[in-house]
Design a protein around this nucleic acid. Sequence first.
DNA 1: CTACATCCTCTAGCGACTAGAGGGGCAAGC
DNA 2: GCTTGCCCCTCTAGTCGCTAGAGGATGTAG
Lengths: 142, 142
Amino acid sequence: MTKTGVSIGEAARQSGVKAPTIRYYEQIGLLPAPPRTEGGRRHFDDGELHRLAFIRHARELGFEIEPIRTLLALQDNPNQPCATADAIAKARLADVEQRIRSLQALKVELELMVEGCSHGRIGGCRVIEVLADHGKCAHTQH
Amino acid sequence: MTKTGVSIGEAARQSGVKAPTIRYYEQIGLLPAPPRTEGGRRHFDDGELHRLAFIRHARELGFEIEPIRTLLALQDNPNQPCATADAIAKARLADVEQRIRSLQALKVELELMVEGCSHGRIGGCRVIEVLADHGKCAHTQH
DNA sequence: CTACATCCTCTAGCGACTAGAGGGGCAAGC
DNA sequence: GCTTGCCCCTCTAGTCGCTAGAGGATGTAG
C-alpha cells in the first residue's frame, strides 16, 4: 500500500532478487523500465514489486526466462484460456521428473563408488576405476 | 590395441565426445596436446582415448571440469592415497542428494499447480496464482 | 585430377547472471 | 555549508561448458 515506491536496494530486499539482477531483467525486457527520480534512480511501485516476486518464484521453481516471459504476458490478459500456462507448467514438471530419475541413477553409481573405496592408494581406488571404465557401472544407461 | 592412432573424428565416435569438445578440452589443458601428422592433424592413441573416456564418464556423472582435472591428476599417480578422490566423489554425492531433495519439493509444487488448473481462463488459473503468490505453496522452503 | 569429407584455427554466442571500474546523488552529522 | 559514507548509475567483461560458424587446408576415393 505504499504510494511512493522504493529504491532498487529496497526492492532487492523485499523481493530477494539482487539489484544487479533486477537491472538485468529490465535490460532483457522481462521487467518494464520503472520511472526514475530526478537524479536518475529507479523507483519501484507495488505493480513492479509484484512482477518481481512472480519472476523470482518462477525462477526458484526452475522455470527459464523465456517461459516466464510468456507466463507474465498471460498474467496480463486474464481472459485468455490458460492452456498455455498449463502446458508450460506440465513441461516443467516432466523436466523435473526426468531430472530426478537421472539423478537417482547417478546417486546409485556414486554410492557404489564411495562405498567401494578402500581408503588406500589410488592404484586400487574404486572411484577412479569406475570413472575409467564405464562397464563397471551398475546401470550403463547414462 | 591399435598402434597408429586415430583422427579426431574417430576419437569422437569412439568416445562419444564431439570433436569441438575434444579440442576444447585440449585448449583448457584437460587433455594433453596429442601429436600431429605432417599436415597438422591430431592423432590420438589409446592413452588419450582412455583419458577421454574417463572425462566423458565423469561429465556424465555430473562432475565439473576442475574436480575432473584433480581426478585425472590422481589417476596419474597410483601411489597416492585416495582420500582426495574419495572426498570429491562424496561431495558430488552430497550435491546429487541435495538436488534430488529440492527437485522432489518442486515436483510436489508443480503437481499441485497442474492439478489445480481448471483449464479455464487465466484469471482463475492456479498455475499463475501460485507463481504470483509464494504463500500458496505447500512448502515455503524454496 | 577432381570432388568431397574431414580437418584446422579463430572468433563469437548461449543462459542467467556476477563482478568490477569509474563516477554521481543524497541524507545525516558537524 | 561541507564532508562522510552509502547507495545508485552505466558500462564492460567474466563465469561455465560448451556450440556454431567463417574461412581455409588436407587427405582420400574414384
